[in-house]
Design a protein around this nucleic acid. Structure first.
Lengths: 331, 331
DNA sequence: ATGAAAGCGCTAACAC
DNA sequence: GTGTTAGCGCTTTCAT
């Protein structure tokens, strides 16, 4: 900047003003400075500017990864989320600082904020760290979480309506004449718990008794589907429908069934969750519940910006939608 | 920091020293300062520190997206890449600034560096912007590109050995008795061009004549597979093998064939590219060429750090590997 | 072992 | 309109 000032024969203040488009500077000078800057490939040093202005246009996006047993970054769901967030942030003129943290060490989620690197944090998934998130919020860290709404929750969540999603999926199976519908998912995770709640509601609404034997814990991990299928088989219970809490889970379950000569959807109708890109390419194409990803990124970003602006939004849910394909039969 | 100093009854210099673990500070003082900082949730402001130290531990990762016609962020391949990069950067103690840019506006790739936000740039895919990347490099921007090696290339690339990948895939089909092997991919993209070169080499190595009619341009986009299949059908040419430059392409092609009552692999043996997570779940499980993603992230990061360190590496290629599953028949 | 002071690159009063 | 000056939060000589 000093160089530019010298070459243009003005002071650094003028350069600063010229480059920020201040009205107080002569048009001719402004032009000269601008040209000079361009020819020297000079750009304002954002770090210094931020320090001086005490501003910052960086948002941290934290994606927990699971060291041990659960869903991790290789799930296509995260990709759409990241893409959607990146778009929304770019749109609003913010940079995205991406970090992965061990889901068991969720303390460090606030680090980008504490160190002044980012003005707020978007966390993908609340995991089982409800209390910790409450603490972080209490400390004044602006944070918005993608996840379910829980009791005594001080932080803002945006999520999709998992109860409705579970309901839609289950009712769709019921409407296709299925009565013994299995459920695959880890109810310990808040979002999955909601889907399970929707599942129960749908059963109740159609006077179908709830059968614990049909509910199998299944992780989002690679061979979660295989393990869950084995567990279900060992229980020796009949089923003609299956609702899986992720598309990957559904796909691997279907593959196991194929190996077992069970036909989908004739013998077992299957519904997945997420509508990842490959759901459509799968054979049979997968019926699934879609979460509105494009909207999600925007909603998260806007909620965070409002929060930073001292205008906290209430936690809210985005609508889910059933995408009917052939894995569930044709209604 | 001033607060801490006041409360600890020392000067800011001492606090700074204490927090940075300098030997010059009394152990007792150090402890007192550390405790105080912890209890106040105080952390060094990285922005100010960077400014003072003229250092920076942020690397920009730029993912071009295609406004018009090609591969974009929703391709699962990018996710593994991002994950791998995030891991490698975390490992090395760097932050990752993620930005998406329109692949037609690749100028802005250097922006994170120019503005001092990052000390270097990793670009995923060189697209058709070879000359522009040369210019950016000439300007002194530390940049490493994931992609193919081209003529007159000033920038460092890391990529997988696409020629070998194309060769492996094609030879595998040949070894399975296929002679009329179609190729789906957009040869305009450097990486695809290399795969195509490997394809030709394998044909030549086995004295199979190259037939232009079998080479169909196909984008990585959603319905690229459908369009390519339609084009191939319109050419009225027989084929018993198909090599697709992405798994998604292969999957959608297989689905079209299924609708056309063509059996895979009996009538047409198919090989994809990337080994995305779903390749294994697909029916039939997809034979494909795997790029070593974990290694890739590390290689990119290390190449960039070395470049920044004035120790530029030569562009280099990572090995590719054929993953045999059933879509190509059983050799 | 600790403090005072200067300065990283920038901006915003406040002068003129 | 433009320059001078102070200071954002930090680190590091240089004194003491």
């Amino acid at each position: 900047m000093a160089d530019i000032a010298r070459l243009a024969g003005v002071s650094t203040s003028t350069v600063s003003r010229a480059l920020s488009g201040s009205k107080l500077v002569n048009e001719e000078t402004r032009q000269r400075v601008a040209d000079l800057a361009r020819s020297l490939n000079y750009t304002i040093n954002i770090g210094a500017q931020n320090l001086r202005l005490k501003q910052n246009r960086t948002i941290a996006v934290v994606v927990p990864y699971d060291a041990a047993t659960r869903q991790h970054l290789s799930d296509p769901f995260f990709l759409s989320m990241l893409g959607s967030l990146a778009d929304a942030l770019t749109d609003r003129g913010f940079d995205m600082l991406l970090s992965r943290v061990d889901s068991e060490q969720l303390d460090s989620v606030s680090q980008p904020f504490d160190t002044g690197r980012a003005i707020g944090v978007i966390l993908i998934g609340q995991w089982r760290h409800h209390d910790q998130l409450n603490k972080i919020t209490a400390r004044g860290v602006p944070i918005v979480v993608w996840g379910a709404q829980l009791e005594r929750q001080m932080y803002v969540t945006i999520g999709s309506d998992n109860v409705a999603g579970g309901f839609l999926a289950t009712e769709h199976l019921i409407n296709n004449g299925r009565k013994k519908i299995a459920f695959f998912g880890d109810v310990q995770l808040p979002e999955v718990a909601s889907r399970h709640e929707g599942y129960r509601k749908a059963l109740a609404a159609h006077q179908i008794p709830y059968d614990e034997q049909l509910v199998v814990p299944a992780s989002f991990l690679e061979n979660g589907g295989r393990i869950a299928m084995a567990e279900l088989a060992s229980r020796k219970v009949n089923y003609d429908g299956l609702f899986c809490c992720s598309d990957l889970l559904a796909m691997s379950a279907i593959n196991i069934m194929r190996a077992d000569k069970k036909r989908v959807p004739e013998d077992v109708a299957v519904v997945g969750y997420d509508d990842i890109e490959l759901a459509r390419y799968f054979h049979p194409p997968l019926t699934t519940v879609r979460q509105p990803m494009q909207v999600a990124g925007l909603a998260l970003v806007d909620a965070l910006l409002n929060l930073i602006d001292q205008k906290p939004e209430a936690p809210h849910l985005l609508p889910t939608e059933l995408i009917c394909r052939s894995s569930s039969g044709n209604k």
